[in-house]
Amino acid sequence: MASDAKHDLHSYLQEGREAVLWKLEGLGERDARRPLTPTGTNLLGLVKHLAGVEAGYFGEVFGRPFPEPLPWAGDDAEPNEDLWATVAESRSDVVDLYRRVWRHSDATIEALDLDARGEVPWWTRTRVVTLHRILVHVVAETHRHAGHADVVRELVDGEAGVRREAPNLPAGDVAWWAAHRARLQEVADEAGRAGGPTARPEG
């Protein structure tokens, strides 16, 4: 059976969307917002950011603007305003917004051919694009942030895995994982001692 490129890309996009939302399941408002990297990466902020990404790329780019205002996407927004949720923006508010953006994006994807042209006003080089290129771009960005969400959720409460139905991890208990991590730390320490602070790749 021949592969349908648009269907394939759309399927990968949906997998990424669902993975990001899965990482919020079971968390309260505080844990959904906890900044767990030096740059403040947090789970709910990733969802809010991706809502804005899709609203722009599948909306404005193809002359099909998302009908709701996104204040954090404006020129007067503060830096990183799209990467965290305020107290007034509840977890359910942000998740529901993301799902509404999905529906708008899906309508654009369904309505246009892969070679349909649009324009990305915020790109500095090639601004004229096709739906095919934008699908690839948004799939890549969504899965990149799904990876961020994997790490942040593990830092929140230890939950890890690719998908609920197929976590793609060894079936170890807490003690097994603690021993595994300790072993990796020993390897890293040994490599650091052997390589020294000025070690460089060969070639």
Results as ranks from 00 to 15, higher is better:
residue 192 G to F: 10
residue 87 V to K: 15
residue 71 P to W: 05
residue 149 A to N: 02
residue 21 L to A: 05
residue 139 V to K: 00
residue 143 H to C: 06
residue 104 H to M: 04
residue 94 V to I: 08
residue 6 K to I: 05
residue 163 R to W: 08
residue 58 F to V: 02
residue 135 L to C: 11
residue 154 E to V: 04
residue 90 S to W: 06
residue 165 E to M: 13
residue 20 V to I: 14
residue 136 V to G: 02
residue 35 P to A: 05
residue 71 P to A: 06
residue 110 E to I: 00
residue 146 A to K: 01
residue 148 H to S: 00
residue 60 E to D: 07
residue 13 L to E: 01
residue 160 A to V: 10
residue 193 R to N: 07
residue 128 V to S: 14
residue 20 V to A: 10
residue 38 P to W: 00
residue 80 N to R: 15
residue 87 V to L: 14
residue 106 D to N: 10
residue 59 G to V: 02
residue 91 R to K: 14
residue 8 D to H: 11
residue 36 L to I: 07
residue 201 P to T: 04
residue 164 R to M: 13
residue 136 V to W: 01
residue 187 V to L: 15
residue 114 L to A: 09
residue 146 A to D: 02
residue 3 S to D: 14
residue 69 P to D: 05
residue 100 R to Y: 07
residue 183 R to L: 14
residue 13 L to A: 04
residue 11 S to K: 14
residue 161 G to C: 12
residue 141 E to M: 05
residue 168 N to M: 15
residue 200 R to C: 09
residue 77 A to I: 07
residue 192 G to D: 11
residue 40 G to D: 05
residue 131 L to H: 05
residue 186 E to T: 14
residue 187 V to I: 15
residue 98 Y to P: 04
residue 16 G to H: 02
residue 19 A to Q: 02
residue 23 K to H: 12
residue 94 V to Q: 00
residue 75 D to V: 12
residue 132 H to W: 12
residue 16 G to I: 01
residue 30 R to I: 11
residue 136 V to I: 13
residue 112 L to P: 02
residue 90 S to T: 15
residue 100 R to H: 07
residue 88 A to I: 03
residue 85 A to S: 07
residue 76 D to S: 13
residue 198 T to I: 02
residue 21 L to M: 07
residue 96 D to R: 12
residue 127 R to M: 01
residue 51 A to N: 10
residue 77 A to Y: 06
